[in-house]
Design a protein around this nucleic acid. Structure first.
Length: 478
RNA sequence: GGGGCUGUGGUCUAGCUUGGUAUGAUACCUGGUUCGGGACCAGGUGGUCGAGAGUUCGAAUCUCUCCGGCCCCA
């Protein structure tokens, strides 16, 4: 695609060509780069630092809930993979295989690790005293996607965490599955400022091998939903297939209850697409690797003082992640553009005029507003602006999302809503066959979730006329 | 599965119809000058023209094969 070569910044507007805008943004903001292998990406330091923010936030939370980290192999024997029939069938189209010799069993590159982990679990679990077992791993998985590959949103290999817990009782399991889902909500809303809907997946969208799948769904500005995290109540098929049993308090053998849950680097994609603008990335302060950048305005005669003042300011901002950009080879304007492209939440400008007034200028990335603050007040003001920006970004995104959610009660309104890039909330019977028929009629539209805080449905299923079980969200999706 | 477009220094690109050893911009390096919203001047580094074969005195250019990328249809 021809681009203006002299444009270091984005050459398309977000509203004009969002797929192109998104790809350019990921590359030019140095979050990611292409790789020699189609469908795979390189995560560059700026992108990886955001992933580390996510890891740190979530890892701290789950450890407080009693989860331990571990690591399992990325190669899974085919025989393991096939033990749970529904699971094997569900993942079959996107599994990549390693085959070395004809007489050796081939190995799957894990698309998810239920099978290899549960094989170990069967040896580790003997009695009810071994439960609950709560293990998480931060790892990579491979899903051989063929179409619409994009940095972060869909790639053949991606990073994620997968938690796999085993419980004595169904009640405890059910309760915790939802607890992890709520932790995901916190990652997205509190850290990434991405509002989400918590819900249950319909039968057609359920994880292969689960009795119930829960999801958090975000809504992107191009009218597509993005599944951001899932938490599954697994069927006891896994326990049976991998022979996980425990001796209960009643001195009898029981099959335990399990869940699995995951979020991936896709979270970065959601944040980029939701908050980015025509100037580049906009990072919510808590997720930003650098929260404040100080740009000194250097003139020959005042250079030394301004640099000294800038360094003093940097030291005064010791409670935030701050960077002093004292590079000599770029003009201040060039640096503004560069840091805006990279999404740094606050920029502090310090020049001779400011220094004379014992003040500095603070500019907000999300609103573009600038204000002059005394040097003495700057650290406090920076802290409060960061907190404000974090809140405002979530509130603004939530307001936009709510405008995109539309309850409908007849098929015509449904069609109009999804065509207009909205998320339609419709009464639905929940049947797999009904949903499959619906996908034929409305190309690209799928059920997103049954909201957990939803009301009882009014009337019949919008698509087949049978009894409606739930109000359900539908839209196009990534 | 069918059809179309495309591949030239890191990036974007001219040249291809009509064959003569590659144009410009940007980036990068050096020096100078500048710096309150992408400064400027001078010099410089960097290309087996996607790969292979063929035609020709001579191929980025013509022919064939292969490989990659993008788009449309089923």
């Amino acid at each position: 695609m021809p681009r203006d070569a002299d444009e270091k910044g984005l050459t398309v507007k977000k509203t004009e060509d969002m797929p192109e805008w998104y790809s350019q943004l990921c590359i030019k903001a140095e979050l990611a780069d292409y790789s020699p292998v189609r469908g795979c990406m390189v995560i560059r330091p700026h992108g990886y630092a955001i992933w580390e923010r996510i890891q740190q936030f979530f890892d701290t939370r789950i450890k407080a809930l009693g989860v331990q980290n571990a690591y399992f192999p990325m190669f899974i024997p085919e025989s393991f993979f096939k033990r749970e029939a529904e699971h094997a069938e569900g993942f079959a189209p996107e599994v990549a295989w390693v085959e070395r010799h004809a007489d050796e069993e081939r190995l799957a590159l894990r698309p998810t690790s239920e099978t290899i982990m549960y094989d170990s679990y069967s040896r580790w679990i003997r009695s009810w005293r071994d439960l609950p077992l709560r293990i998480n791993q931060w790892n990579n998985v491979v899903r051989w996607e063929v179409k619409d590959v994009k940095p972060f949103l869909r790639s053949r290999e991606f990073l994620w965490q997968e938690g796999h817990c085993v419980y004595e009782t169904e009640e405890q399991r059910n309760k915790e599955t939802l607890l992890y889902l709520d932790e995901y909500r916190r990652v997205f809303e509190e850290l990434l400022a991405v509002p989400v809907i918590k819900g249950e997946k319909t039968m057609a969208e359920r994880f292969a091998g689960a009795d119930r799948s829960y999801t958090i769904e975000a809504f992107m500005p191009d009218g597509k939903a993005l599944q951001c995290g899932t938490s599954h109540d697994l069927s006891q098929g896994f326990a049976r297939a991998f022979d996980i049993r425990f001796l209960g308090r009643d001195e009898k053998k029981h099959a335990p209850w399990q869940n699995s849950w995951g979020i991936s680097t896709r979270a970065i994609g959601a944040m980029v697409m939701l908050h980015g603008d025509d100037k580049g990335l906009v990072l919510p302060p808590l997720a930003a690797p650098v929260q404040v950048v100080i740009v000194p305005i250097l003139f020959e005669d005042t250079k030394a003082e301004v640099l000294r003042g800038s360094a003093a300011l940097r030291d005064a901002f010791r409670d935030v992640r701050v960077r002093l950009d004292d590079r000599d080879e770029y003009s201040p304007g060039w640096k503004y553009h560069d840091w805006e492209l990279k999404g740094v939440p606050l920029r502090v400008e310090l020049g001779p005029r400011d220094l004379e007034k014992k003040s500095c200028v603070i500019a907000r990335r999300d609103t573009g507003k600038k204000e002059s603050v005394t040097l003495a007040d700057a650290p406090k003001r920076v802290a409060s602006l960061l907190a404000e920006m974090q809140r405002d970004m979530l509130a603004a995104a939530r307001a936009r999302m709510e405008k995109s959610m539309l309850p409908v009660s007849e098929e015509k309104a449904f069609q109009a809503a999804v065509a207009a890039g909205k998320m339609a909330l419709a009464p639905f019977c929940g049947k797999k066959t009904c949903e499959e028929a619906l996908r034929e009629r409305f190309a690209g539209v799928t059920s997103r979730c049954i909201p957990l805080d939803g009301k009882a449905p009014k009337g019949k299923c919008l698509f087949c006329g049978e009894k409606a079980l739930h109000e359900t969200y539908f839209s196009r999706a990534y």
